[in-house]
Amino acid sequence: MTTDEAPYQRHLITHAEHPIAAPLSEESVAALLRRALADRAGPVRLLDLGCGQAAWPLRALAAHPTATAVGVDLDPGGLAHAAAEAARLGVADRLTLVTGDAAAFAAEAAHGAFDVVLSVGATHAFGGLAATLAGAVARLAPGGRLVLGECFWEREPTPAALTALGAEPADFTDLAGLVARCVEAGLTPVHGRVSTLDEWDDYEWCWTGSLAGWALDHPEHPKAAEAAATAAEHRAGWLGGYRGVLGFATLVLRG
């Protein structure tokens, strides 16, 4: 393959070294999945709304041989990657991948109820937190668990942070406000993890480093300059803007 033929799928490139599309370590992901699947005897149905590369369902299926999962996302590249990884892990027969809108899927009652619903770093797929919670609850079985990953303000957002994120102060609340909104939606928090600064840094270094490295490795590619500029802009916005200001919490909530 020549450099001009190398595919440019930015989401796959930026997550090549950090497949979890959120600032969470592998240990945190494993612990959260254990909590979500606790006390579940027999077959378990999982649904990931906005699954990307289906990193969460793949880990759950590998650890729980009686589980089945559905992943929904609009990105065909991410789903193709997920299908290949499912085949490699030997779980392809238990994973259904749907190319489509997560909110529309959640609104369709014919899909039935799921024991575990996941939406980690994907509230944008619903247009915000409130709609995400409503959509997830609609597909959650009685007594089921929702794994929700969402940003919050660690401290008062600075002008630099808001500029880097293209955000407004009202886009997120603090951690207490995030939990309160979940409770207002009829959900009870039973576990949670706040991403550490080390987890954030690892995620951001992987994101920017993978993209910058791809640009260096493919200097003749038509997208090389764009990739390098995107990596540099993202890195500057993180280091000079929202680092230590924007937080991320992953909550396990019972319906």
Rank of each mutant, 00 (worst) to 15 (best):
M1F: 10
E5P: 04
A6K: 12
A6D: 04
A6T: 11
P7R: 01
P7L: 02
Q9R: 12
L12V: 08
L12K: 06
T14Y: 10
P19S: 03
P23F: 07
L24H: 00
E27A: 15
E27T: 14
S28W: 01
V29L: 11
A31T: 10
L32T: 07
L33F: 07
R35C: 10
R35H: 08
A36Q: 04
A38W: 08
A38L: 05
D39A: 15
R40I: 11
P43F: 05
P43A: 14
V44Q: 11
V44D: 07
L46N: 09
L49P: 03
G50Q: 04
C51W: 02
A55G: 00
A55I: 02
A62Y: 02
A62M: 05
A62V: 07
A63K: 06
A69W: 02
V70M: 09
V70T: 15
G71V: 00
D73T: 08
P76H: 01
G77N: 02
G78T: 00
L79G: 05
A80V: 02
A80I: 00
A83Y: 06
A84R: 12
E85W: 06
L89M: 15
A92V: 08
L95K: 06
L95W: 04
T96M: 12
L97K: 01
V98S: 04
A102M: 08
A104Q: 03
A110T: 01
A110L: 02
F114G: 02
L118F: 14
G121Y: 00
A122K: 05
H124F: 14
H124E: 12
A125D: 14
G128R: 08
A134R: 12
V137H: 15
R139F: 00
A141L: 09
G143H: 10
R145T: 07
L146K: 13
V147A: 02
L148M: 03
C151Q: 11
F152N: 01
W153G: 04
W153H: 01
E154R: 14
E156W: 06
T158F: 02
P159M: 04
A161W: 03
A161T: 04
T163P: 05
G166I: 12
G166H: 11
A170G: 03
D171H: 09
F172W: 12
T173G: 12
G177N: 09
V183H: 13
E184G: 14
E184C: 07
E184N: 10
A185D: 04
P189Q: 09
V190E: 05
H191Y: 13
T196Y: 03
T196E: 09
E199R: 12
E204R: 14
W205T: 15
C206E: 09
W207A: 14
T208Q: 09
T208W: 11
T208L: 01
G209R: 14
G209L: 13
S210K: 09
G213I: 01
P219D: 08
H221Y: 08
P222D: 04
K223Y: 08
A224I: 00
A225K: 15
T230Q: 13
A231H: 08
A231F: 12
A232T: 08
E233S: 15
H234G: 05
H234F: 14
R235D: 15
G237N: 10
G237R: 09
W238S: 07
L239Q: 15
G240D: 13
G240C: 13
Y242W: 15
R243A: 14
R243P: 09
R243D: 07
F248K: 03
